[in-house]
Design a protein around this nucleic acid. Structure first.
Length: 773
DNA sequence: ATAGGGTTAG
C-alpha cells in the first residue's frame, strides 16, 4: 500500500486517524518517514495529542522528525514548548540541528534570553552564514526589543535578502521606533534592494504616529510604480495609513478601488467610521460586509459594539452580544468581552455590564478599567471605588494609566482627598505621574477636594502642551469662584500657544458664571466662534444662560435660549429655572419647568427648584401644587447626604438620621448653636422645606439637614480653630448656607462646603461666593 | 517529510 500517497490526501482528522490505525497494524508502525509526516499533519489539523503520540512512536527520530515537531508547536502558538523541544534536541540527543531547525525555533523565541541562547547555538554549530538562519535571528532579536543585537547580526550578513530587510523594519516598528524603521526603508530604496508587499505593509503603519503624511504619500506612489497595489495586504495597509492620518476620503477611495477585499479590509473601514463617530456608516459597512459573504470576527464586533453604544442603540447592542455568545467569541478573546462590558456601560446599563464582567473567563487590567470607568461615568462613584478596591486585591493585575484615570474622578466626586492622595502616591510609584491624563485627573481631584493650591502646584509641573491640563485648572478655579484667575490662566494659555478647545470654553464660561463676570463671559462666548472657529454646543449655551440669568438678566437669558440654532436641552432650561428661583421670576420659571418636564420628567431636582421658587415669593399654592405633582408622579426626592473625611475614614450623614454613633452629641450641639445663632439675628427660612408638614416640624427638618449634622460633627470632633471641610451630594440648601455663615462667625472656624456645583468658603460670617450662587 | 519577514485593536 502506498501510505505516502494516502497521507497526502488526508485533509480531515477522521481520515487521518483511520490511516494511523492502519499503519499501526501494517508492520510500518514507527516508520520515520511516514510518522514524521503524521506529526506534521496532526499538528496542522490542530491535534496536539496525536501529533505528540506519533512523535513518541517513532523509532530512530531524525532531524526531519524534530523539525516537524518544533515547527508544529510554533505554528500552534505553543512557543515555550517549541523552545523546550529545541533544547531537548541539542542536549539530550545526538541528532544535529540543520538549517531548517533554527528558523522554526527562533520564531518561537519570546524572551530576550531565548534569542541569545539560540544565537549561541547557531555560532557553536556554524550556522551564522546561512541566510535563512541569520534573517530569522534578526527577526527574533527585533521581536525581543533587542534592536542593537538585531542590527549587529544584520550588518554582519554577507548577503541579505528582502526578508532580512523587512525583519529590521518591522522590528523597529514594533519597538515604537518609527523613525529608525523609516530610515531602514529609505536605505533599501536608495540601495536599490527593491521592496515587496511585505516591506510596504511593514513600513506604512509608522507614518501616522510620526505625523508624516508626505512619506506615506511617497510610499503610496512607490506602490503604484511597482504595481504592488493589487495586493490585498498592501491596500489594507494603505487604507489604514490614510484613515489614521485623518484622510478618510483617500482611505475610502483605496477601499472602493480594491478588486477584492478581505476581513481586514472591511474591519478597517468599520473601525475607521466608528472611531470617527460615524456609527451609521460603520453599520452600513458591516451590512455590506455580510452581504459580500465575509463573516465578521472578534475585531469586527468590537467596533460594532462600540458603534451601537455611541448611538445609544441598546437593541443593536444586545443583538451584538447575542451574536457573540452564539459564535462563542466571548471566551476566545478578552478583547471582545471588554468591548461588550464597555458597550453596556456606555448604554448606561451597568447591571448588564457587571454581569458580562463577572462572566469573563479571564480579566485583564483593561476589563477592570472598563468596569471602573463605567461606574464612574454613570455617576456611581461608590461602586467605582469598590471595584477599584477589588482590583487591588487581585495581586496579579497592576493598575495602569487607565485605572488611575478611571478611579481619580470617582474620588474627586466624593471629595475623598486622602484616598486621592494615595492614588497620587501610586502614580509616582508606577511611573505615571508625568502622564498628561493622570496629571490632569490629579489636578482635577485636588481642586475638587478643596486643595486648589496643590492643584496649581501640580499644574505647574505637568506637561502643558495640550489643552487638557489647562481645562482642568481653569475649571478648578471656576468651582472655587476665582473667575478672574480662570480668565488669567486662559490668557496665559493663549500666550503659550496652546489651542483652546470646546471643553476649555465650558470651563471658562462656568468660571465667569460662578464669579458673576458677565461681560467677560459674553465676550469669551463671542470669541469662541469668531476667533477660534469653535461652534458653540448646547453645553456652551447652558453656561451662557447660567451666566446671564444668575446675574439677574433673565430676559437676556431667555432671548439667548430662543436664538439657539439647536433645540435647547435640560441643562439649558435647568440653568434658567435655577435663576428664576433666585430672583423669584414665577412666569419664566414655570415656562422653564414646563420644557424640563417634557425633556426630563423624572428628575426631581427641577421640582425642588420650582417649589423653592414659589416659596421664595410666598406663593404657597404653587408650593402645594408642586408637592402633589411629585406625589402623583411617584417621584422620590433624591436623599441628601453630606460626607466628611477624617483621616482615612469617611463619615456620611443623612438628613434627619440618627445613624451616626455620635448623633446625640451632634444634635445637642446643633440645639446649642441654634440659640446662639438666633441671638445674632438668624431667622430660619422654611421655604426650603419641600415636605408638607407643620411649621415646627419644618424647623426641625432644617436643623437636621445633612450638611448641618456634618458641620456639628466637625465642631465637636476637630480641635478648635481647625477648618471643617465637607462634601454635599446636592446643591447646598439656602437656609443651611445662611446658617453656616453664622456658625463660621460663632465658632471662629473656616468651613468649606463643596456641593454638586461649586465650593463655598465660609469665614467670619461671610461666604466666598458672596451669596452669588 | 521540515523553514524566516506583513495589514485591523480596547
Amino acid at each position: 500500500m502506498d501510505f505516502n500517497a494516502l497521507l497526502r490526501t488526508c485533509t480531515c482528522a477522521r481520515a487521518l486517524k483511520r490511516l494511523h490505525a492502519l499503519l499501526l497494524v501494517s508492520g510500518r508502525s514507527g516508520d520515520v518517514f511516514l510518522y514524521t509526516k503524521l506529526v506534521t499533519i496532526y499538528s496542522l489539523l490542530g491535534d496536539r495529542r496525536s501529533s505528540l503520540l506519533s512523535f513518541d512512536q517513532i523509532t530512530g527520530k531524525n532531524i526531519f522528525t524534530w523539525n516537524s515537531l518544533i515547527s508544529g508547536h510554533t505554528r500552534s502558538g505553543r512557543h515555550s514548548e517549541a523552545v523546550g523541544c529545541f533544547h531537548r534536541l541539542v542536549t539530550e540527543t545526538s541528532v544535529r540541528p540543520d538549517a531548517f531547525t533554527f528558523p522554526a525555533a527562533l520564531k518561537a523565541c519570546e524572551q530576550p534570553a531565548d534569542a541569545r541562547r539560540l544565537h549561541a547555538w547557531i555560532l557553536k554549530l556554524g550556522f551564522q552564514w546561512d541566510l535563512f538562519v541569520s534573517a530569522s535571528l534578526v527577526h527574533a532579536y527585533s521581536r525581543s526589543c533587542l534592536m542593537a543585537d538585531a542590527r549587529k547580526v544584520f550588518d554582519d550578513m554577507p548577503v541579505r535578502d528582502l526578508a532580512s530587510w523587512n525583519a529590521m523594519i518591522s522590528g523597529f516598528c514594533q519597538n515604537g521606533n518609527a523613525a529608525e524603521a523609516l530610515s531602514v526603508f529609505e536605505e533599501m530604496v536608495k540601495r536599490g534592494v527593491g521592496v515587496d508587499p511585505v516591506t510596504i505593509t511593514s513600513v506604512l503603519p509608522v507614518c501616522p504616529p510620526l505625523g508624516n503624511l508626505p512619506v506615506g504619500l511617497s510610499i503610496h506612489s512607490h506602490v503604484v510604480k511597482r504595481g504592488l497595489d493589487g495586493d490585498v495586504f498592501v491596500s489594507n495597509a494603505l487604507v489604514n495609513m490614510y484613515s489614521k492620518s485623518g484622510c478618510l476620503g483617500d482611505a475610502r477611495q483605496i477601499f472602493d478601488a480594491m478588486p477584492e477585499r478581505d476581513l481586514v479590509s472591511w474591519n478597517s473601514m468599520i473601525s475607521t467610521y466608528e472611531q470617527g463617530g460615524d456609527s451609521n456608516t460603520a453599520f452600513e459597512f458591516y451590512h455590506r460586509m455580510k452581504v459580500s459573504g465575509i463573516e465578521p470576527d472578534a475585531l469586527t464586533l468590537v467596533s460594532i459594539a462600540s458603534a451601537a453604544s455611541q448611538i445609544g442603540d441598546a437593541q443593536n447592542g444586545r443583538s451584538v452580544h447575542a451574536f457573540l455568545l452564539r459564535r462563542g467569541l466571548d471566551s476566545a478573546r478578552i478583547l471582545v468581552g471588554n468591548a461588550v462590558v464597555d458597550m453596556y456601560a456606555k448604554l448606561n446599563d451597568m447591571a448588564s455590564a457587571r454581569r458580562v464582567f463577572d462572566g469573563l473567563h479571564t480579566r485583564d487590567v483593561i476589563s477592570w478599567n472598563t468596569l471602573i470607568t463605567g461606574y464612574a461615568q454613570n455617576g456611581s462613584a461608590r461602586e467605582a471605588i469598590d471595584a477599584f478596591h477589588a482590583l487591588q486585591e487581585q495581586e496579579v493585575i497592576t493598575p495602569s494609566q487607565g485605572t488611575l484615570v478611571a478611579v481619580l474622578p470617582a474620588y474627586a466626586h466624593v471629595g475623598s482627598l486622602q484616598q486621592g492622595m494615595r492614588i497620587h502616591g501610586l502614580s509616582i510609584h508606577i511611573g505615571l505621574k508625568s502622564d498628561v491624563f493622570v496629571s490632569t485627573c490629579l489636578i482635577d481631584m485636588y481642586a475638587k477636594c478643596g486643595r486648589l493650591g496643590d492643584a496649581v502646584l501640580l499644574f505647574r509641573e505637568a506637561p502643558r502642551r495640550s489643552s487638557i491640563p489647562w481645562n482642568a485648572i481653569i475649571a478648578g478655579h471656576g468651582i472655587h469662584g476665582h473667575g478672574e484667575q480662570a480668565a488669567k490662566l486662559f490668557r496665559e494659555m493663549e500666550e503659550e500657544g496652546v489651542k483652546p478647545d470646546k471643553v476649555t470654553f465650558i470651563s471658562l464660561l462656568a468660571a465667569c458664571s460662578h464669579a458673576g463676570l458677565v461681560d467677560q463671559g459674553q465676550s469669551f462666548f463671542q470669541s469662541m466662534h469668531s476667533k477660534y472657529g469653535i461652534e458653540p454646543t448646547r453645553k456652551h449655551y447652558a453656561c451662557l444662560v447660567d451666566l446671564l440669568s444668575r446675574a439677574g438678566d433673565l430676559d437676556a437669558a431667555h432671548d439667548c435660549i430662543r436664538s439657539m440654532p439647536m433645540k435647547p436641552d435640560a441643562s439649558v432650561w435647568g440653568a434658567l429655572l435655577g435663576a428664576c428661583r433666585i430672583y423669584g421670576n414665577v412666569e419664566l420659571g414655570a415656562l422653564a419647568f414646563e420644557r424640563l418636564s417634557e425633556i426630563d420628567p423624572e428628575n426631581v431636582g427641577y421640582y425642588v427648584l420650582l417649589s423653592n421658587m414659589y416659596a421664595k415669593v410666598r406663593k404657597w399654592q404653587g408650593v402645594d401644587e408642586v408637592r402633589s405633582l411629585v406625589k402623583n408622579r411617584g417621584l422620590k426626592k433624591t436623599p441628601g447626604w453630606t460626607s466628611m473625611e477624617v483621616g482615612t475614614e469617611v463619615h456620611v450623614f443623612f438628613t434627619g438620621s440618627f445613624s451616626h454613633p455620635r448623633s446625640e452629641e451632634i444634635y445637642k450641639e446643633l440645639r446649642a448653636l441654634l440659640e446662639r445663632m438666633k441671638a445674632l439675628g438668624y431667622v430660619p427660612d422654611h421655604s426650603f422645606v419641600l415636605q408638607d408638614v407643620e411649621e415646627d416640624e419644618k424647623e426641625h427638618i432644617l436643623q437636621s439637614h445633612s450638611e448641618r449634622l456634618a458641620i456639628a460633627f466637625g465642631i465637636i470632633n476637630l480641635p478648635p480653630g481647625t477648618p471643617i471641610s465637607i462634601f454635599k451630594n446636592l446643591r447646598v440648601c439656602g437656609d443651611c448656607h445662611s446658617a453656616t455663615k453664622f456658625i463660621s462667625r460663632l465658632t471662629e472656624r473656616e468651613i468649606i462646603v463643596r456641593d454638586s456645583n461649586r465650593f463655598h468658603h465660609f469665614k467670619d460670617g461671610l461666604c466666598s461666593c458672596g451669596d452669588y450662587w
